[in-house]
Design a protein around this nucleic acid. Structure first.
Lengths: 115, 115
DNA sequence: CTTATTTATCGTAAATCGACGATATACTAA
DNA sequence: TTAGTATATCGTCGATTTACGATAAATAAG
């Protein structure tokens, strides 16, 4: 009986899509990896690491922050960015939910019920 | 002790970003959910479900297919679409890898090593 | 053959994205 | 105060995305 076959919630779709969009750029993934590998506070080091202009990196950081994936805390003249991996749980759950149980017999002829 | 702190692979970043981009639209997520809930073959039913023009849905299906997330097999005049959840494993692993171990003590003053 | 059905592709227009330089803002230090 | 550093925002341009209607291509049925 199908374990509640994902009610096609439009709201959830939007949330997951927004999270996916936040991850949909190599530079942003690189930033996330950098924050994971660097437990301390990094600021402009991110700019050097990704090799893009400072304004561009700032925009990527803004997008990640807007999606809730990272958080930035002001620390003197710098900003301390930190990962917020819990924010990705909705996306992770969606991806996990796509694991089909087993009944993947596709293409049942489907005789289109005589109208 | 850090478990190989993600080598900042540019190639992987691109693959993950492409997968994330494929999921970065509510209509595409809805299609995936629909395919999950419908083990059989569906064709134009997707068009009705998402409520967009047929050409638009076809484009979304093309994007999902290009990303490897779904596969389409021709079945008479229709096409049978099926989920390909394994294609998302790279994305799933990336998201899972962001779970920080524990040392999230951010904002170590970082005295900027006297030059 | 013709007709109907299903899907893909072709324009096209509006919106968004990605990148940059220039500039503004915020804070520290002197 | 001024000077220096770090980050954010603004304006712009080119590329990409999304959506649509119209049309083409492929197949099944008659």
């Amino acid at each position: 009986m199908l374990v509640a076959p994902s009610p096609l919630s439009d709201t959830t779709d939007r949330k997951v899509a927004d999270l996916a969009k936040a991850l949909a750029h190599p530079a942003r993934l690189r930033i996330l990896r950098l924050l994971l590998a660097t437990p301390g506070c990094i600021g402009g080091d991110i700019v050097d690491a990704v090799g893009l202009a400072q304004s561009t990196v700032s925009e990527h950081l803004r997008i990640l922050k807007a999606a809730g994936v990272i958080s930035g805390e002001i620390s003197g003249p710098r900003v301390c960015y930190a990962l917020n991996p819990e924010a990705l749980s909705v996306l992770a759950e969606f991806v996990a939910s796509l694991k089909v149980p087993d009944s993947a017999d596709c293409c049942i002829p489907n005789p289109k019920a005589a109208t």
